[in-house]
Design a binder for these strands. Structure first.
Lengths: 226, 226
DNA sequence: CCTACCGATCGGTAGG
DNA sequence: CCTACCGATCGGTAGG
């Protein structure tokens, strides 16, 4: 039931046999400078994101996460100070990835119409939300209640950065009459419409992500019809 | 920190003194037929809704709920079979209230334009979401993950009833050209935009619920401008 | 990163 | 609806 971490290495059959001496187990380390700690840490993050998303933060056990990453129950705490820190890391990773993808997509429409720029923002947003490796952002959207205030503040800063990508585009659309609601409320309502899709979108159903993009644009700015 | 149940009766100072004989405590029961069980049950529901909303279901303790309703730790289980049953009752109560309010508001716009009918739906929806006693529906929107499949099925039926109030109005708007997105996706996106408002709406800020109604209508159907 | 474990908390119950 | 309690689980840690 806990989504097995797709690429979880070192599944550790847990035979209960007496452990062999440490140096004899597994293949030898290539070089002290080349430890795969980042790999294990990333496996924990992916497992945590999947479980936090499907069960919620409070209902997910650090033991669940450890098992999904092929570790023993105490091992997550070697990589993260607390369950809380794991949650924050998942969200931070999600926001950094989302920002990076939006920024990478920006130049493609920089010289085009505000409508085309909005299409780019909406499309990338849906891809981040519904595409592969898409557990991190939903966790951020639906579990921020469990953060402490410092963590929340740190994430708010990233979220402001993200929103600032939308504001000038919406302002231009508002100025041209294509967007009739006030820019601030329009941004909140539009992002809400997009974010809510994680609750109902089913990749196996008929509608595709591209269908969603077109529907959202038609709904918000009426497809070039001003 | 746990929102104190505003009207919690019987706050029980918990003095630790030996309890007086049962018949001597409190004012005498009016009549065996007139027990205030419904009152206590309602207090539990209100307390549970507030706590489930602010902390989430899994992070809320049945002891938290009991305390907020002025009871001892084991007492909620006199009224509800399990914590799960309490959650389901909160959601069911929320959906019944939302349906009742929408149905009561329908006649007022029945003979008016589809735009006016949509305004009525949106306005009532925001009131249910953001008005007084508005914890029940947010709990339903954000905690259904914690239901078992029978409970989820029962709620899905109520949600379908609710959505069926929107579909004919959206179909009429689509037919007239005022709504350009496909009806099904438009409904999902629009309700998402509205539902998301519980995450950011702050009654103490400048925007009012009426501002939200107007902004949403302007965004979705462009305010009579087709 | 594993083993073995602690202390605290939690949902739920018996019996009144 | 309260008292007193059980059994299980959980986050986290020491020590290697």
């Amino acid at each position: 039931m806990p989504a097995q971490a797709a690429t979880a290495p070192n599944p550790q059959p847990a035979t209960g046999l007496a452990p062999a001496p440490l140096r004899a187990r597994g293949r030898p380390r290539k070089t002290p400078l080349e430890r795969d700690d980042g790999n294990r840490r990333a496996a924990l993050l992916r497992a945590a994101a999947a479980l936090f998303r499907s069960q919620g933060f409070a209902a997910t056990t650090t033991r669940d996460i450890a098992a999904a990453a092929g570790m023993q129950s105490g091992s997550p705490f070697y990589h993260f100070k607390s369950k809380d820190a794991l949650l924050f890391a998942v969200m931070q990773e999600g926001m950094h990835a989302a920002l990076a993808r939006q920024r990478a997509a920006l130049p493609a429409t920089a010289n085009q119409s505000p409508q085309a720029q909005l299409r780019g923002l909406v499309q990338t947003h849906f891809q981040v939300l519904l595409g592969p490796d898409s557990d991190f952002i939903p966790v951020m959207l639906y579990e921020s209640r469990s953060l402490n205030s410092d963590q929340r503040a740190a994430l708010s800063a990233l979220q402001s950065d993200y929103e600032s990508l939308w504001t000038p585009v919406l302002a231009a659309l508002h100025a041209s009459g294509a967007l009739r609601a006030p820019v601030g409320l329009a941004r909140l309502l539009m992002l809400g419409a997009l974010n809510w899709s994680v609750q109902w979108f089913d990749a196996s159903k008929s509608a595709t992500v591209d269908d969603l993009v077109e529907a959202a644009l038609a709904l918000f700015v009426g497809e070039a019809a001003a």
